[in-house]
Computed example of a mutant assay.
Amino acid sequence: MTDTLTDPTATITATAAVVVEADGRASSNDALHTAIDEALRRGVPLRVLTTWGPRHREMYDATAVAERDRLSQAQLERRLARALKRSPDLDIQSIDGFDSAAEYLAAHPHSAQVLVVGAEHPDSPELRAALAGSGCAVLTCARRHRL
């Protein structure tokens, strides 16, 4: 399911989390599933960045934004509840208030062991700089082929 693992040379702590960005794209759903598995495999917390809000605000009026936020949050909560049902000891926290993984990693540079991203996750100079400063690895999920 994964096709890329890049590990910068900076030191990270063994208790740092697996971080995934839930931005509403189909590929972020694949990344979420991979991030859950990776957090379980490593025995570390999972941090889910809820960054769909900025994308919704660009595309919809205020009423639609509120509804999209509500639906996106409900969908994420269902997915995380299923993960907790399978693995009740998994430490999962949803994090809001950041527009991107780059912004989160810049603000909390040593909080992540690995950033899990979907195949369609946008690359940017800000993300590359945040990754270099944080020292966390990047795990890029391959696209799932759906019927």
Score class of each variant (00 low, 15 high):
K85P: 01
K85T: 12
R86C: 10
R86M: 13
S87C: 13
S87M: 11
S87T: 10
P88A: 09
P88T: 11
P88H: 08
D89Q: 13
D89N: 12
D89K: 13
D89P: 07
L90G: 06
L90K: 08
L90M: 10
D91R: 13
D91E: 10
I92W: 02
I92N: 04
I92A: 08
Q93E: 11
Q93W: 00
Q93S: 15
Q93F: 05
Q93R: 14
Q93K: 12
S94V: 13
S94R: 07
I95L: 11
I95Q: 02
D96C: 15
D96L: 15
D96P: 09
G97Y: 04
D99C: 07
D99H: 12
D99I: 06
S100C: 01
S100G: 08
A101P: 06
A101V: 01
A102I: 00
A102Y: 02
E103I: 10
Y104I: 03
L105C: 00
A106E: 09
A106Q: 12
A107W: 01
A107E: 11
A107L: 09
H108D: 08
H108W: 10
H108S: 11
P109G: 05
P109M: 03
P109T: 02
H110E: 11
H110M: 10
H110T: 11
H110S: 11
H110A: 13
H110P: 04
S111Q: 13
A112K: 07
A112M: 01
A112R: 00
A112Q: 02
Q113G: 09
Q113C: 09
Q113T: 07
V114I: 14
V114N: 04
L115Q: 02
L115S: 00
V117M: 02
G118H: 02
G118R: 02
G118F: 06
G118T: 03
A119L: 11
A119K: 13
A119T: 10
A119D: 12
A119N: 13
A119R: 13
E120S: 14
E120F: 07
H121D: 05
P122I: 07
P122W: 06
D123S: 12
D123R: 15
P125N: 12
P125M: 11
P125C: 09
P125H: 06
P125R: 12
P125Y: 04
E126A: 15
E126N: 12
L127R: 01
L127Q: 00
L127T: 04
L127M: 08
R128H: 07
R128S: 09
